[in-house]
Design a protein around this nucleic acid. Structure first.
Lengths: 361, 361
DNA sequence: CGGAGCGTGTAAACCGGTTTAGTTTGGTCT
DNA sequence: AGACCAAACTAAACCGGTTTACACGCTCCG
């Protein structure tokens, strides 16, 4: 019946004050007598009143929402296990702040930019979290034009003013290479991610640096796109090398899992004939056989920190960059000393084990 | 400078009409002279005006947002490749309708219900998409109480009035079993998903039915939780059986991939010693070796249909249930006729290949 | 000719908050 | 006592739309 949702006037009436004063109280503004404040809070409590986000949005030109736009080619949209965990981290902060996450998934750059623009112009979000940074990322210019705060995951190039939350994966890659070198590997390949992406490029540079440091051949690198399919193809090319690597460092786990599949398909024993390392420490990498040596990060924590940083930036107009604890090497089963043979392939690879795949483009 | 965002009054002034009339025009309401309508549209176009969502929300008590709440235990949050693709499907519909997706990821039931309640009471969403239906799902009661529309993925129990979008995976499971039976398997195991979840239960029932149909032993079933870890453990238990199955049907791909890892760890050849089938046709299942025979669904399409159904339900107060095209069997490499031996395990399993895992809880 | 009825349009209330300008009250200073 | 001031509070404008009640001019019709 009379269960209409109460509004600020109901509370004001019940407490015997004006609407404005109620507003002052719920926004913790000074200038309200303690006793009155309490009376208002009591009234609000009894009525079960909370200020309406829509009304506040209209007044304050603020949406109490944060935006996350993910661009992924349709077919490899499910490849990235990073996001669900990352989003869980975001949420854990947003929920306690009465904020909300607006998520968009788009498949091309045009739609991506359109989405940022629309969300910003319609004031549907107060700020964005930028992932998958590109070199010369066009989003920064756009967001500056739109005047919307943002926080970047990873360090963008020079001249960009948004705060960034960063995790040093250089150390992780270096750790992996040192681990392999320590095992005795001298021909170490790298299946790199998309070089247009900041973390793809950086991991690759880290690899180059670590290989150079060890005084090894740094030519066994193939750049691809972070997808399982790309990882598989790159692995084939590396293994087709007349003098193939004895270890391959992958820039993420899905590529490593796919690479493992390719190696096994060719009859290579992992890790004896080929050591493999992943990156990101995703769930599934621990359940394939052999379990992948990988580098673990903490996407949930990353999400938490990104959310906090963006909220601080929105509130104060300024926020410090944050450096997360570096990714840690997790040694499992897919790495071992290289087998003792000089030729290209071990003897006895069953022909039947090659090229029988039907479902691989 | 004067680049203030235009509002409805600017447009009205420019067109020489009242605010109300502008509102009528943008909402396609009758009663406006065609010539006037055009003049207003022109004015709006020149000014680059779009009605403010916040203001509309306040007036209309509508948020132009749809809610999706995902509950996942923290540690297996990244396990499910279904969501990114599903969300992409939702988005493709929402974007063109000027609507937005509000996503929440929570880790326990209390937080889940709290989230539904808050989003609804604060009018932050106009409706919900319900995934991961449980038997006796408490969300239906809550949403009915809150008076918020929703659409369910999968068929909820009796007495629930929300429209549902459904995909018949019974046929998929039956197809898998027939495929295996056709190959000559007589001992077929099943690693089922969470029996508390509707699709977990239904796939298991489908399996039971298909096995009974074939007149085979239906006792080789283990229920677990859809997680890779659960799949691995269940596989170990099935293989520990003194008379183990020669084929295992998994209720989803991550469990199947993990099961494959377990089998390989034990030195079993897949598919010769053990055939394995997944479910859902996720990307990665095509890149492990051997590539998994699985049952493909189309989560993107599922998302599109769910979004359309929910929007129709919100608009008209009624929407028909939708039955998606059934999941299709995709035969790849992980299934073959059973090897010809009667004992439990094939001879020659290297002891070293057992129990070397370090990183498995 | 008077009134009903229709098509077109306007003014103003309304959604539920926030915020500014201003009023009241009580106390201090001189 | 009068001037001044700060603290506490109110009234009303405002955010930017939607919607209702009503006005105006026409035509149609008895």
């Amino acid at each position: 019946m009379g269960a209409r949702k109460p509004n600020i006037s109901d509370v004001a009436r019940k407490a015997g004050v004006s609407n404005g004063l109620v507003s002052f109280v719920v926004n913790n503004r000074p200038g309200v007598a303690p006793e009155t404040r309490q009376r208002i809070l009591d009234a609000a409590g009894e009525l079960g009143w909370r200020p309406s986000p829509s009304a506040r949005s209209l007044s304050l030109k603020t949406s109490f929402a944060l935006g996350l736009v993910i661009r992924r080619k349709e077919d490899l949209i499910s490849a990235d296990p990073f996001f669900p965990a990352f989003i869980a981290g975001l949420e854990s902060v947003l929920a306690s702040e009465g904020r909300v996450l607006v998520l968009s998934v788009v498949s091309d750059v045009a739609a991506e930019l359109r989405t940022y623009r629309t969300l910003a112009e319609d004031s549907r979000v107060d700020g964005f979290i930028l992932t998958d940074l590109q070199h010369n990322d066009t989003r920064f210019k756009l967001l500056e034009e739109l005047g919307v705060p943002a926080v970047a995951l990873g360090r963008p190039g020079e001249g960009v003013t948004v705060p960034c939350v960063q995790l040093d994966d250089t150390r992780g890659i270096a750790g992996v290479v040192e681990h392999l070198v320590g095992l005795g590997h001298t021909r170490i390949g790298h299946v790199a991610g998309d070089p247009a992406m900041v973390h793809g490029g950086r991991r690759r540079e880290s690899f180059d640096a670590a290989i150079a440091e060890a005084g090894l051949d740094g030519t066994l690198v193939i750049e691809t796109d972070f997808s399982a399919g790309g990882g598989a193809e790159a692995t084939r090319r590396l293994l087709d090398n007349p003098h193939p690597p004895t270890a391959i460092v992958y820039a993420n786990d899905p590529m490593a899992v796919a690479g493992l599949g390719v190696a096994q398909r060719r009859g290579l024993r992992v890790p004896d004939d080929l050591s493999i390392t992943g990156f990101d420490g995703t769930d599934i990498s621990g359940y394939v056989f052999p379990a992948l040596t990988t580098v673990t990060s903490d996407p949930v924590e990353w999400g938490r920190v990104a959310a906090r940083t963006l909220l601080a930036y929105i509130a104060n107009g300024k926020a410090d960059d944050v450096e997360l604890p570096p990714a840690a090497l997790l040694i499992r089963e897919s790495t071992s000393p290289p087998a003792r043979h000089d030729g290209a392939f071990p003897a006895g690879v069953p022909a039947s084990a090659r090229g029988t795949a039907a479902a691989h483009k």
